[in-house]
Design a protein around this nucleic acid. Structure first.
Length: 271
DNA sequence: CAAAGGTCCTGCTCGC
DNA sequence: TGCGAGCAGGACCTTT
């Protein structure tokens, strides 16, 4: 479900409800996610105060004095702020309950998400330490991507989705960014010029920023269903639009499978 | 049966 | 021959 803008929108949505709040109960209904939820989570987390709600790539970090909860929403995960009056539904796997009566509830039908606990610096965690730069930070630049791509033969779309190269660019926004930059998703990353990487990096930043902005304005109240962050279909130029007319040249948008994921592009506008 | 918005892990190939 | 890096494919799971 979530790409970086949705994860960031989720982070902003839950933060005001749980920051500086103390955990008084942890309910694990289904611990079998991508990895098992650690059995020690409950013991570690109870009586701890959430000091910081942070994001790194698509991971959300809940920092306490003694350790950090590492959350990942996988393909179908979502976070909700709720309370004891709202019964848990089928795929509500975890509740973190606070003194202010609020509950942070994780829902994840496909269970590709993860909930982990670390006492050490979470940024040094095995899953986070090798992550590439944040796409919206200055260190994600055309020069950086150009350099990183020189000895790689993978298609540019695959490179863009590699979290060791840059975090947070998922399947939808990879297609969208390449369309905006006018680059064919099949093109070998090592054959792309610095000038074209300038366009691509600008497109990635532009698209992610816009999506976050839209997430923020769409998000009314994270405690209700209608507050869920979603994808904003009207802003998608190519994703999910196979056979529809390209918005620039009216050529039908093509769809094909690349690294086991659907890619959408315009064969006329993207070379 | 295929596909859905993620990404780690395994094992292979390639070049030094 | 050995080693590391890059890469493809499989794996995880449920719903439509």
């Amino acid at each position: 479900m979530p790409e970086l803008p949705e994860v960031e929108t989720s982070r902003r949505g839950i933060e005001p409800h749980i920051i500086n709040q103390t955990v008084n109960e942890v309910i694990i209904r289904q611990k079998q996610l991508r990895w098992p939820i650690p059995t020690t989570l409950k013991k570690q987390l109870i009586k701890q105060r959430i000091q910081q709600v942070e994001r790194r790539g698509k991971y959300i970090l809940l920092r306490t004095q003694v350790g950090t909860v590492i959350l990942h929403l996988g393909m179908s995960g979502s976070l909700h702020i709720t309370n004891k009056n709202t019964p848990a539904e089928k795929h509500d796997h975890l509740d973190i309950c606070f003194n202010n009566k609020k509950i942070l509830r994780l829902r994840d039908p496909r269970r590709f998400g993860a909930v982990l606990w670390t006492k050490a610096d979470p940024l040094e965690h095995k899953l986070l330490i090798k992550l590439g730069p944040e796409p919206l930070n200055a260190d994600f630049s055309a020069e950086y991507l150009y350099k990183a791509s020189r000895n790689r033969r993978v298609a540019i779309k695959t490179l863009l989705m590699n979290s060791h190269i840059v975090v947070g660019v998922g399947n939808i926004y990879a297609s969208e960014s390449l369309f905006q930059a006018g680059i064919n998703p099949k093109r070998s990353s090592h054959k792309i010029s610095l000038a074209r990487y300038q366009k691509l990096v600008a497109a990635v930043k532009n698209i992610l920023q816009l999506a976050i902005k839209q997430g923020g304005t769409t998000l009314k109240d994270f405690t209700h269903e209608d507050g869920k962050p979603g994808y904003f279909q009207q802003t998608l130029a190519v994703y999910g639009r196979a056979n529809e007319a390209c918005i620039h040249c009216t050529t039908p948008i093509k769809q094909f499978t690349q690294a086991q994921r659907s890619t959408f592009y315009c064969s006329q506008c993207q070379r």
